[in-house]
Design a binder for these strands. Structure first.
Length: 467
RNA sequence: GGCCCCAUCGUCUAGCGGCUAGGACGGUGCCCUCUCACGGCACAAACCCGGGUUCGAUUCCCGGUGGGGUCACCA
């Protein structure tokens, strides 16, 4: 069988962390099998459309490196890939079911339906449609909906899912659900079945919240006489309390991308609810594709651990080449008018310390400010300044400035050993003279960053004005 | 409430009848060290409960409990 999976978002907002994972799994499954991954826009709810949303969704997928083979922007053999452009197909399909008496028209008013549900739930009965219009033949087309008829002969429905296994549902709990709305647009149920059949979808990979309506979909496929796709219902992503939501902070992908590398985010999200049975934590895109197996996706929900994402992002940062990292940071933080070489060196210094791209220390780009005392622990300012004076003289006469921090360390430490200078009393003032901070990269790193001129300038400033 | 899903450290997880129950994040301690990170080492931390099945259950079955989802002319 040829593998075809899809991501079918409704254009009503931003790409959410949960949708990213759903998409990623569908994408990985297709890529793993050399199949097709396509995009379909589900814009059947006229009232909830958000303009520009579909475009943003696609942009965000691109920004995390998820590519599709067919879609609204690039077309493909089974288009159109936008549901509002496929209305004729849904109407035709619904009409066919009416002709076969597997569906019927209903013009019950919203008021009646609401009343009905209220009465039913007041009596502690499941709120379902009472079949008022089931036998009617006089329902006008105008303003009415088409409902699916749950056969009265049906007792059990067996559905199957490749991560949950078989599920058997009592048909009595099923409702005569709406297929076609009165505005002529299909409901999700109809559109899903018609499209995934027409578009040859082999695997429907979607969130667990769809599981309760799986029997409807199965019944529809059977009513049409179509082969059902393989279903994979993914466990939900949970926040602090229940389904991941705004309560847990902004969970939009764009929000994460402000501080997180796309590859780290993908790596992180891939391992939420699935893992290839090892102790490896970091996977390249290729490794994910090679290892992915939908049937090994967990059936239990996963709480999102944002701290681990930060850690993972740090790991990715450490593995990057400094120039690439520098460009990633440049787009996210204000680097003032730092010149390229200086910025690149600052990035090298911060690379082992950084977890969030947006947390790059600002002091590199700001005027010098002494915030920590020059004196080391129990030592005194006088001693600190004596050391700095000696150090300045030594650095001053250096013929060649160290090429890198390790060089600087070697040279200065040799000199210190020579003079019998204690490290804390010397290096602490040295570092504070350069950074002004309680915590910062080391003095050798900073001397390399600033170069001879600026290093000497800062030393002199500390000797004269330092406290 | 009906229906459905789920259940290993706080969190993500390995485990697929016999293990000192492994790893990662986070936490703690130590080492490295001028500070902060990085890195290294160590420690604390889990099989929800009750019945079965079995020589033997974290693992299989049933029940309970707990958590979650879903019950629209939304997806």
């Amino acid at each position: 069988m040829h593998i075809r999976t899809r991501f079918a978002p409704s254009p009503t907002g931003e790409l959410h962390l949960g949708s990213l994972r759903t998409t990623l799994y569908a994408y990985l499954h297709a890529r793993h099998h050399g199949g097709v991954f396509y995009l379909r826009i589900e814009d059947t709810d006229q009232s909830r459309l958000v303009s520009g949303s579909a475009e943003r969704l696609m942009k965000q997928l691109q920004s995390v490196g998820i590519t599709w083979d067919e879609g609204p922007d690039i077309g493909g053999p089974y288009g159109p890939y936008v549901q509002s452009e496929r209305l004729a197909m849904y109407r035709q399909a619904a009409g066919q079911l009416i002709a076969e008496e597997k569906a019927y028209r209903c013009d019950c008013s919203p008021e009646r339906l609401t009343q009905l549900r209220e009465d039913l739930s007041a009596r502690k009965l499941p709120p379902k449609y009472d079949g008022h219009c089931r036998a009617r033949t006089d329902v006008p087309e105008e303003g009415s909906v088409i409902r699916f008829r749950i056969s009265e002969n049906l007792s059990k429905v067996t559905v199957s899912d490749c991560i949950h296994g078989d599920i058997i549902i009592d048909a009595a709990t099923l409702d005569d659900f709406v297929l076609l709305k009165s505005d002529g647009f299909p409901t999700y149920h109809l559109a899903h079945v018609v499209d995934d059949h027409a578009m040859m979808t082999s695997h429907v990979i979607r969130a667990d919240e769809w599981l309760p309506s799986l029997p409807k979909h199965a019944l529809l496929f059977r009513a049409f006489g179509w082969e059902e796709p393989v279903y994979a219902h993914l466990p939900l992503l949970l926040g602090a309390k229940g389904k991941l939501s705004k309560r847990d902070g902004d969970t939009n992908v764009s929000q994460f991308l402000q501080w997180c590398l796309p590859d780290a985010l993908v790596n992180f999200v891939a391992l939420l609810g699935w893992n290839p049975s090892g102790e490896q934590e970091i996977y390249s895109r290729e490794e994910l594709i090679a290892a992915f197996d939908v049937t090994k996706v967990h059936s239990s929900p996963a709480k999102v651990n944002f701290e681990k994402l930060e850690w993972l992002n740090g790991e990715y940062i450490r593995r990057m080449d400094p120039d690439t990292l520098a460009t990633q940071i440049r787009t996210r933080v204000d680097t003032g008018n730092a010149e390229n070489e200086f910025f690149r060196r600052a990035v090298v210094l911060e690379q082992p310390r950084l977890r969030r791209l947006d947390a790059f220390p600002q002091w590199y780009f700001q005027p010098y400010m002494q915030e920590a005392p020059l004196a080391w622990k129990k030592s005194t300012l006088t001693v600190a300044k004596e050391r700095l004076v000696e150090l300045r003289a030594f650095l001053q006469q250096l013929a060649t400035w160290p090429e890198n921090p390790a060089d600087a360390e070697r040279v200065v430490k040799a000199w210190m050993a020579d003079r019998g200078l204690e490290t804390g009393e010397t290096l602490w003032p040295f570092r504070v003279a350069l950074s002004g901070k309680q915590t910062s990269p080391g003095p050798f790193e900073l001397a390399w960053l600033f170069g001879k001129e600026e290093t000497l300038r800062r030393l002199s400033y500390a000797i004269e004005r330092g406290v």
